[in-house]
Design a protein around this nucleic acid. Structure first.
Lengths: 214, 214
DNA sequence: GGGTATATGTTGACGCTGTCAAGATAATTT
DNA sequence: AAATTATCTTGACAGCGTCAACATATACCC
């Protein structure tokens, strides 16, 4: 819509009064600032400065700082799902391997982006009633739900046992991701990547439903 | 040491220039403020006001705000262990029941004190190199380690498999506690307390070592 | 096209925050 | 009793998020 109006061809629009793509630029600046400073030292003014814009500019696009964090958390769930899909594609197609891949992708995201993981799962600042955040959060949850359902070959919404399985899988990979993201399982991080992944896979499998009686 | 010097017999010492027990009072005020406001809205000045003291008084006892949060997190690990011991005492004495009790106590603490749980496990503000925090944190970790070792009847430090078992148990109860503390497993919290606990026990057992080959 | 409305960004101010320095007061020591 | 130390208050400072007022660019409408 604004592509034909903007004279500069690239994304370099510094110096112009109207930025043209500030909303996205602010989100990327916020993501970088989050990774650098962590969520507890995050500052709206520092984000604005990083984006090369005045301290009050973000208000026009996100309202207040929590609005920006809401949009950023939504982006976080997108990154989570991307990490999981990456694992899904390279994993074997059987339901067990696919479910393990979902868990490994979850842990990948947590360890690669600990601050973003915190924002998405351990912060009250994003507004989870906002549809823009609630929707991707639900999508991410459904990925795990579908993975478990594929294992059981049942519908997840009705069966209480399947929901317990989802809780089990989710809690296990979430706990692993959270503890690894905060560097609390030292011995695991001291292993090689292959050894570590083998241990993680073995642990993730424990959370799966036993399936013997079905 | 100061008991004989302080004329007022009770803990009510408001109005006097020297408080007499400010360090403990500040910690309790901080705990109450943390429960009320959450860690992200926590304010040192509000804590001082709650303790009935000037905004700069905490500095003499804790240095800066992170020093106070370090002491508060140490208190959090004490509460965690207290919750676990409460469960241990009322559980059956066999190793499996005791280990499940440790997990339920962990979850009890997380759901009863979500903000304190966040401070102890998901915040970078407390200084975990401080011996006053590192020590109780290690004690809490060792409780789980001992519980798993009792199950295996092996020494936890040497055996890599036991450390994987500890990681498994820890991640599972930590994940359950974290997700429940942030209200993300809605269907579990919709159950009665007995039903919920039954599901939790079943899930916790999944994280345990299988033990069949030993 | 031209003029007006709207969207977008800046500036300055406000109260709040954590921290520091300086001063006041109580407790301890000598 | 005097001096020292520990404890608490006061006042200042920069940085924070938010708001109102203003500036400028884009979009819309005739």
């Amino acid at each position: 819509m604004n592509e034909k109006v903007v004279p500069t061809s690239k994304a370099e629009k510094i110096g112009r009064y109207h930025h043209g793509n500030l909303k996205e630029t602010l989100l990327e600046a916020a993501q970088a600032e989050l990774a650098d400073q962590g969520i507890e030292k995050l500052s709206l003014r520092a984000i604005a400065k990083r984006a090369g814009v005045s301290h009050a500019a973000p208000a026009h696009h996100f309202g207040d700082v929590n609005g920006l964090l809401t949009a950023l958390a939504a982006r976080g769930f997108g990154m989570l799902m991307a990490a999981q899909k990456l694992r899904l594609d390279t994993a074997r197609p059987d339901p067990v391997s696919q479910l393990v891949a979902l868990g490994l992708g979850y842990i990948d995201f947590a360890t690669a982006n600990p601050a973003m993981f915190r924002l998405a799962f351990s912060s009250k600042r994003p507004n989870f009633d906002d549809p823009g955040l609630h929707e991707p959060a639900k999508l991410a949850y459904d990925m795990l739900g579908d993975g478990v359902s594929a294992l059981r070959d049942q519908s997840p919404a009705s069966d209480l046992a399947v929901m317990a399985d989802v809780a089990s899988m989710w809690a296990m990979v979430h706990g692993l991701g959270d503890l690894l993201a905060s560097g609390r399982i030292k011995y695991l991080q001291a292993l090689t990547a292959e050894e570590c992944e083998a241990v993680l896979i073995e642990i993730i499998r424990r959370a799966m439903p036993s399936l013997e009686k079905s």
